[in-house]
């Protein structure tokens, strides 16, 4: 199976000590490692206001992970762990590789088009080129 990219965000209770959060992150990392995945990035966004109440909390400690995985099972396991972890009040996993693929495609296509336009504009030094240049600026 090809490699997939995921975003994983989880929210802890605001009164959770930092060490506890680190512990959760490390268990997730080992769990991911065991199942052929990898945690690429860990970002702690810190305590933020929640847009609505979650488990009677108005604030939450956000942690963001960027994952690479080759097995869907891995996500299942990580979500199970987050579900049983006491300080975690909410989590969300989003699969992103397809959107990234789309984004790359669009960006590439635009770059190609821009290059073609530039090529077309440069050899013609007549009024046409100046007109297009004026339109672009």
């Amino acid at each position: 199976m090809e490699e997939r990219q995921y975003d994983l965000i989880f929210i802890c209770r605001p009164d959770t000590p930092e060490t506890e959060v680190d512990k959760i992150v490390s268990t997730l990392e080992t769990a991911a490692g065991e199942r052929g995945g990898k945690v690429e990035k860990v970002e702690k966004w810190g305590t933020r206001k929640l847009a609505y109440r979650v488990r009677k909390q108005r604030e939450g400690y956000y942690v963001y992970l960027l994952l690479h995985s080759t097995q869907g099972e891995m996500i299942k396991e990580l979500e199970r762990r987050l579900k049983v972890a006491d300080p975690v009040i909410k989590y969300l996993t989003v699969r992103l590789d397809e959107e990234m693929k789309r984004q790359r495609k669009l960006t590439e296509r635009r770059d190609r088009r821009a290059a073609r336009r530039r090529r077309k504009a440069t050899p013609a030094t007549s009024t046409e080129a100046t007109a297009t240049g004026a339109a672009a600026s």
Partner: peptide
Amino acid sequence: KRARNIAMLPFATE
């Protein structure tokens, strides 16, 4: 909709 799911945006203001 994704941001709403992770409590970064409200579904409806309280």
